[in-house]
């Protein structure tokens, strides 16, 4: 329970931080947006329009209460004619991003767990060594390198997939999967090694505990030792590892979306940053941060609830 409150508090603090960073900017922010030859009147008008002349706290409360209802205000780009709300820009893209991340996770998680468990059980085997070398290599790979490498081989050399992952609301699932195959594969490659290594480490830690040795000396079979004595203690750290890595996946999405010109929140955010479209940047950052915090919170909670010491407190005693 206290974890939940803590998570919520973190979310509030982070949202305040995202807001503040932009709100407490030096005064020439409006000028920077409007360009050097803006008149003082235009600047003042802009400041009024964006609300920069009101107290920061009031603006924050207005913004966050809007955000909770899904209203992130107007994009700066709407000044040039047609009005565009941030929400309508983000919503379809957020679905796309979730789809891509989910697709990648569906491939990455089972793969990481299988390989991690295997390399922990067959420690120092060729499999384990390969996994170790792969991990060290893959944490050194920028997403864009993997992405272009895949593109080079699977689009240019062997035309299997698409280099542009352009999808829209009407794209049928099969084609959607085909078009997002490369971006998803990129995400799998950059996350799987790390996840695998952490799964391996948590299994090895459990296998080294005295109660596993005791289980062996009770004459139990290896299968029973793994299933009954190791797994109940290992799954909590594994699940928590996965949650943390899924959080990481959310970030990896940004670069990958740009490479494959995939209409997701990441690409939108990068665009908005270069145009300094503040409301959009804030909204995207809030969405990414919230997902990330929720994932970490889930990891925390899973760790806690699976600990027998907390499930069965000492006071419980004999009933």
């Amino acid at each position: 329970m206290s974890r939940l409150i803590l998570g919520l508090m973190t979310l509030v603090l982070v949202s305040a931080l995202i807001f503040m960073v932009v709100a407490l900017l030096p005064g020439d922010f409006a000028r920077a947006i409007l360009g050097p030859n803006a008149t003082p009147e235009t600047v003042a008008a802009f400041r009024h329009e964006v609300g920069l002349d009101r107290p920061a706290l009031a603006r924050y409360l207005e913004w966050i209460s809007g955000a909770v209802r899904g209203d992130f205000g107007l994009s700066f780009s709407s000044r040039s004619g047609n009005t565009r709300t941030v929400a309508e820009m983000i919503l379809p893209r957020f679905r796309n991003t979730l789809f891509l991340a989910g697709f990648a996770a569906l491939m990455a998680v089972p793969l990481a767990i299988t390989l991690g468990v295997l390399s922990a059980l067959y420690r120092n085997s060729w499999l384990d060594r390969t996994v170790n070398a792969m991990t060290l290599t893959s944490i050194s790979l920028p997403e864009f390198f993997v992405a272009y490498l895949l593109m080079f081989f699977f689009v240019v050399k062997i035309p299997l997939f698409y280099s542009l992952a352009s999808v829209d609301a009407g794209t049928p699932l099969g084609e959607r999967l085909l078009r997002t195959a490369l971006p998803a594969l990129t995400l799998v490659l950059v996350t799987v090694a790390h996840m695998m290594r952490m799964v391996r480490a948590s299994i090895i830690a459990v296998l080294a505990s005295p109660y596993i040795e005791m289980a062996r000396l009770k004459g139990l079979s290896p299968a029973r030792i793994i299933l009954r004595h190791a797994l109940p203690n290992a799954w909590a750290p594994i699940v928590s590892v996965i949650a943390v890595n899924l959080a990481y996946l959310i970030v990896g999405v940004v670069v990958v979306e740009v490479v494959f010109v995939y209409p997701g929140v990441g690409q939108l955010m990068v665009d908005a940053v270069s145009k300094r479209d503040v409301p959009v940047v804030q909204a995207c950052a809030l969405i990414f941060a919230a997902t990330y915090i929720l994932m970490n919170l889930a990891a925390d909670i899973l760790t806690v609830v699976s600990n027998p010491r907390l499930l069965h407190p000492k006071e419980g005693g004999v009933r």
Binding site: P210, Y211, E213, M214, K218, H229, N233, P308, R309
Partner: peptide
């Protein structure tokens, strides 16, 4: 059979 020094560590905390 074997009886270990640290019973606290030799019993599986999950069962």
């Amino acid at each position: 059979a074997y009886v270990a020094q640290s019973a606290a560590a030799a019993f599986n905390p999950a069962h």
